[in-house]
Amino acid sequence: MDHHELTQDALDDVAEMRDMLRNARRIVGFTGAGISTECGVPDFRSPGSPWLKFPPIEFGEFVSSPAARQEAWRRKFAMDDIYGHAKPGRGHRALAHLVSVGRMSAIITQNIDNLHQASGVAPSRIIELHGNGAYARCLDCGLRHELADIRARFEATGEPPVCASCGGIVKTATISFGQAMPEREMLRAQAVAMDCDVFLVVGSSLVVHPAATLPLIARQSGARLVILNRDPTPLDEAASLVVNADIGDALEPLAQLN
């Protein structure tokens, strides 16, 4: 893995972030696409992103049109071929360590790539605001469906899946554009944001709402807000500390914290 040369300012910021995390009692992590890019998972906004070639289909269209469902599943499997074999990166492993030693109470994530689970974090500690792309659910009865079964049938017949139990529409367990945010997860995320002393944003552009309100909720509740991201965000001025550095380089040493 190439380690990026950090400027002295960035090194100082990283050292300050580690001190802050070392002294924190209860950290909440908040992750976006930037934590997974070193794992080969593309983000939405970079030039040439495969998401531009295979954009997600809006929820209303998915529900109303069998042709849209067929196309959505075609794009889903095309994207899985690009990043479905991704493994957790240094950032995921560092956060998993912070959870395992009791310093991080929860990880709120906007990602659908299942890499926090793959890094060993218990699902009960992960709050997925945008769902999970590693399996599917029936929109009517909620039954879980495995992607390998869906894909085998889809490639044999070209037909979008229907629920084995009730015949309803089956969709990946992600939150699509136009689909309601998961209420229980949003309430849990708000609760942990109000109950931490450091809220650590990792790799999120903080432009997608309502998720982007969570750092402000934490700050208004007395937490220190730390933003680690490659590029500036709209909430930088609200943060106690902003670190513009490579995420893997910045977080890797945290895996040694006790």
Rank of each mutant, 00 (worst) to 15 (best):
D2Y: 01
H3V: 00
E5V: 01
Q8G: 03
D9K: 14
A10F: 06
A10T: 15
A10K: 12
A15T: 11
E16R: 15
D19E: 15
D19L: 14
F30A: 10
I35G: 09
I35W: 08
S36L: 09
E38V: 05
C39G: 02
V41R: 03
P42I: 02
R45Y: 08
R45E: 04
R45N: 07
P47F: 01
P47M: 01
G48W: 06
G48I: 08
W51V: 07
F54Q: 00
E58V: 14
F59S: 04
G60C: 05
V63W: 09
S64D: 14
S65T: 11
P66D: 10
Q70H: 09
Q70G: 13
A72T: 06
A72E: 04
W73S: 04
A78D: 06
A78V: 01
D81M: 05
Y83D: 06
A86C: 07
K87H: 03
P88H: 12
A94W: 06
A96Q: 13
A96E: 10
H97R: 03
L98S: 11
L98M: 14
V99D: 14
V101E: 06
A106V: 03
I108F: 12
I108H: 13
T109M: 13
T109Q: 13
D113Q: 14
N114S: 15
L115Q: 11
S119N: 10
S119H: 10
S119W: 10
P123G: 15
I126V: 15
I127K: 12
G133N: 13
C138W: 02
L139V: 05
D140K: 03
D140W: 00
L143H: 05
L143D: 06
H145S: 06
D149C: 00
R153V: 05
G158A: 07
P160K: 14
V162P: 00
G167E: 02
A173G: 06
I175F: 02
G178M: 13
Q179A: 15
A180I: 02
P182N: 09
L187V: 01
A189C: 10
A191V: 03
V192M: 11
M194Y: 00
F199G: 07
V202N: 11
G203K: 13
G203H: 13
V207I: 14
V207H: 03
V208K: 09
V208T: 12
H209N: 07
P210D: 09
A211I: 08
A211P: 07
T213R: 14
T213D: 15
P215E: 10
A218N: 10
A218F: 10
R224L: 08
L228H: 09
D231F: 10
P232L: 02
T233K: 09
P234M: 04
L235A: 08
A238T: 01
V242Q: 12
A245W: 10
G248W: 04
G248R: 01
E252T: 03
P253W: 05
Q256R: 10
L257P: 00
N258C: 02
